[in-house]
C-alpha cells in the first residue's frame, strides 16, 4: 500500500476554491436559518395560537424527522416538476437554510424561555405590548444566550453542507471528488478533504470561543 499525495498538491487550488464555496453556502444558509429560526421559535412559544403553533411545529417535526439528503433532493429534483427551476446554489442554500432553521428555532425558543418570567411581567406592567416587550426587553437578552449554541449549529452546518455536492454544487467535497475521478487516489484526497473540513470547523470553534470570552468580559453574558 503506497500513498501518493501528488494529486492533492496539484488539485490544492481547486480544493481551496471549493472550501470558499463551502463557507459561502454555509454562511448564507445559516443566515436564512436564523431568520426562519427566529420566526418559528417565537411562533412555538404560545401553543394557544393553534394555527401558527401547529404550522411551526409541523415544520420542525418534518425537518428534524427526515434526512437532509431527502430534503435537498425534494428541492432539487422535486420542484422542477412544478416548473420551478432553481439554480443549484440557490437550492443548496434553501435546503440547508430550511434544515438549519428547524434547529435554530429550538435554540431561539430555549433562549427566550430561559429569560426570567419577571422580565416580561416588568415590561408588560410598564404598559408595553407583547411585541414591544419581546423586541426591547426579551430578545436582546436572549440573543446573547443564543450565541454559543448557534456556534455549534454553524459547525454542524459546515459538515452537513458536504451533501450539497450531490446537487452539482462545486463545494469542497465536490472539488475533491472531481480530483478523485481523474486520479483514483480516494484515500489521499478524502483525507485532504477531511483535513480541510477539520480546519474550517476548528477555526470557527476558536472564533466563537473568542467571541464568547469577549461577551463575558464585557459583562454581557453573566
Amino acid at each position: 500500500m503506497n500513498l501518493d499525495f501528488t494529486p492533492v498538491w496539484q488539485g490544492w487550488p481547486q480544493l481551496m476554491h471549493g472550501a470558499v464555496v463551502t463557507i459561502e453556502i454555509t454562511a448564507a444558509s445559516l443566515l436564512l436559518g436564523c431568520v426562519l429560526g427566529l420566526l418559528v421559535g417565537i411562533a412555538r412559544l404560545d401553543p394557544s395560537k393553534k394555527l401558527i403553533y401547529g404550522l411551526a411545529t409541523g415544520y420542525v417535526t418534518f425537518i428534524r424527522g427526515t434526512p437532509l439528503l431527502v430534503q435537498l433532493f425534494l428541492l432539487f429534483f422535486g420542484l422542477p416538476q412544478f416548473n420551478i427551476l432553481l439554480p443549484a446554489f440557490a437550492c443548496g442554500v434553501l435546503g440547508l437554510g430550511i434544515y438549519s432553521g428547524a434547529y435554530v428555532s429550538e435554540i431561539v425558543r430555549g433562549a427566550i424561555q430561559s429569560i426570567d418570567r419577571g422580565q416580561m411581567e416588568a415590561a408588560r406592567s410598564l404598559g408595553m405590548s407583547y411585541r414591544q416587550a419581546m423586541r426591547i426587553i426579551i430578545l436582546p437578552q436572549a440573543v446573547v444566550r443564543m450565541i454559543p449554541p448557534l456556534g455549534n449549529e454553524f459547525i454542524a452546518l459546515i459538515k452537513n453542507s458536504a451533501l450539497v455536492s450531490l446537487l452539482t454544487i462545486a463545494d469542497l467535497m465536490h472539488e475533491g471528488q472531481k480530483i478523485i475521478s481523474v486520479s483514483y487516489r480516494s484515500l489521499e484526497v478524502y483525507l485532504a478533504i477531511a483535513f480541510v473540513y477539520l480546519i474550517l470547523t476548528s477555526l470557527t470553534g476558536l472564533l466563537l470561543r473568542h467571541m464568547e470570552m469577549r461577551l463575558r468580559a464585557g459583562g454581557v453574558v453573566q
Binding site: E121, S125, I137, Q141
Partner: peptide, 29 residues
C-alpha cells in the same frame, strides 16, 4: 396597555432589565 401605564408596579425580585443601564431602565418606558 394604556391602562397599565397608569399603574406602577414594583416586584419582590426587582425585575430590572439587566441589559440596560440604570438610566435606560428608567427611560425605556
Amino acid at each position: 396597555n394604556a391602562l397599565r401605564m397608569q399603574v406602577g408596579m414594583v416586584f419582590q425580585s426587582f425585575n430590572l432589565f439587566p441589559h440596560l443601564t440604570v438610566l435606560e431602565n428608567v427611560t425605556v418606558g
